[in-house]
Design a protein around this nucleic acid. Structure first.
Length: 408
RNA sequence: GGGGGAAUACCCAAGUGGCCAAAGGGGGCAGACUGUAAAUCUGUUGUCACCGACUUCGGUGGUUCAAAUCCACCUUCCCCCA
């Protein structure tokens, strides 16, 4: 049987690992517990987390036991790793709220039934900690000199690092120790920016328990130009359909850079490697087939098959030139509003953020009415423009909207 | 605790009395070219009643015909020393 470690490696998940041999050994027997921590810094997971969920899913399918550790406690500190600025301190209510959202989204990929996977919140053991006891038991095990030398803190030393954040590493390390003690969890997985924190935990387990504990980090999803992937105008590529509509989610992947396709197929879908290799052979225009597949698969995993079908369908209708799609965003107006200047309608419908922006767009021929560019700012709809009580507005090349005028 | 510096639009960053809605870059948006890609080129990027007007340069007050620019106080951040 193929080892999960190989699978993860082949698919490009593994960035670094502390003890490859031991980890392979550990994962060779089913039932191995491992954990990944998620700090509830937003009210939805995003693609970055998604890679980690995928890794968890692979491991779970191989018979292992994932522990999703929500950072209800560490979230109150804020991880300084890889950040140049101070994180905002979050209120307890916000953290609770976010933790709830995370839970739901994780269930998309991880099977938590019958304790096949665990979801824990480190608030459980971090909040009751006694300061003096903690620094005597745990703090004594850490060398400040070494901590300062880690990549995670280096950057911050130039911009300022509060003592609050400095403690983050200890708490994350303590999590590992706690999970080792409770569940015999010997492997912590995380984003590659977590390397120092994870190692600190593995170290702590060794020191306190003379136990075996390992670290493994996952490739950060970056674009071919090295930037973090998943940034859009609206922020991140969220998994929450309320924060990023399935169609837009689909489009994000559909429009991905050529150079990133294979990497994404490997990391973000469960397609067998043979199939992915076939896509790797494509060139030029044919790459679009791979992008379609990628978008369809990822959307399917995150939002379900039905949503993926719909998104794909909508995309085909819009881009294949057949014009009007059934499920483009629609805004309703009352029939009498037809006579208002189109620009007003568009701003009211929030299709355009301001009238100035609208003027600019019109000037640059970026607004189309039924596929013909609008020429002047004060255009008012003509009866001939309205088909079935609606007009189709296009903004730029890809955004379609339907303005519907209700009868009466 | 002492001393020094900084806060400018989405981000970085120029600007130190009128020529400033504010250089430059990044990003965004639109157009051309394309493969719904990338790269490139062009335009654009505070708001509105848009050839004009109005509101912006951490906050509040003040000086002045006129302030992002000068003064006072406040807030926040950074650096050096302790």
């Amino acid at each position: 049987m193929e080892s999960v470690f190989d699978v993860l490696q082949e698919r490009g998940f593994i960035a670094q690992s502390s003890h490859e041999k031991e980890i392979r050994e550990y994962l060779s027997k089913p039932g191995a517990a491992f954990y990944i921590g998620f700090d509830p810094t937003a009210d939805s997971l995003h693609v970055g987390h998604f890679v980690q969920l995928m890794a968890m899913a692979h491991l779970q399918r191989a018979g292992h036991r994932p522990i999703a550790l929500l950072g209800g406690g560490t979230g109150m500190i804020g991880d300084p790793s890889g950040r140049t600025d101070l994180r905002k301190v979050m209120s307890i209510e916000t953290i609770r709220h976010n933790v709830e959202k995370f839970k739901k989204q994780m269930e998309i990929l991880i099977d938590f039934s019958d304790d096949k996977a665990l979801m824990l919140d480190n608030a459980e053991w971090l909040l009751p900690l006694n300061y003096i006891e903690f620094i005597r038991e745990i703090g004594s095990q850490f060398s400040v000199n070494r901590m300062l030398a880690t990549e995670a803190y280096k950057q911050r030393l130039e911009h300022g690092l509060t003592f609050l954040e400095f403690n983050y590493m200890l708490l994350q390390a303590y999590d590992f120790l706690e999970l080792y003690r409770r569940y015999d969890c010997r492997l912590q997985v995380g984003g590659d920016d977590q390397w120092s924190n994870i190692l600190a935990g593995a170290d702590l387990v060794r020191r306190k328990e003379q136990g075996h504990a390992y670290a493994m980090t996952l490739t950060l999803l970056t674009t071919s130009t090295g930037e973090k992937m998943g940034k859009t105008v609206g922020g991140a590529v969220w998994l929450d359909p309320d924060k990023l509509k399935p169609y837009d989610f689909y489009q994000y992947w559909r429009n991905i850079d050529d150079a990133d396709i294979i990497k994404c197929l490997k990391l973000l879908t469960f397609l067998p490697m043979e199939e992915i290799s076939a896509y790797a052979g494509l060139e030029g225009q044919n790459l679009n087939r791979a992008k379609e597949k990628l978008a369809y698969e990822v959307t399917g995993i995150v939002h379900g098959k039905e949503a993926a079908d719909k998104a794909e369908q909508a995309a085909k209708e819009i881009f294949s030139g057949s014009g009007a799609a059934a499920n483009m965003p629609e805004v309703s107006f009352s029939s009498s509003e037809k006579e208002r200047p189109l620009l007003d309608l568009l701003t009211d419908a929030k299709i355009i953020p301001s009238r100035s922006e609208g003027r600019r767009l019109i000037q640059q021929k970026g607004i189309y009415l039924n596929d013909k560019p609008i020429e002047n700012y004060d255009y008012v709809l003509d009866e001939g423009d309205i088909i079935d009580n609606a007009v189709i507005i296009r903004k730029g090349k890809k955004r379609y909207y339907r303005l519907f005028f209700a009868e009466g």
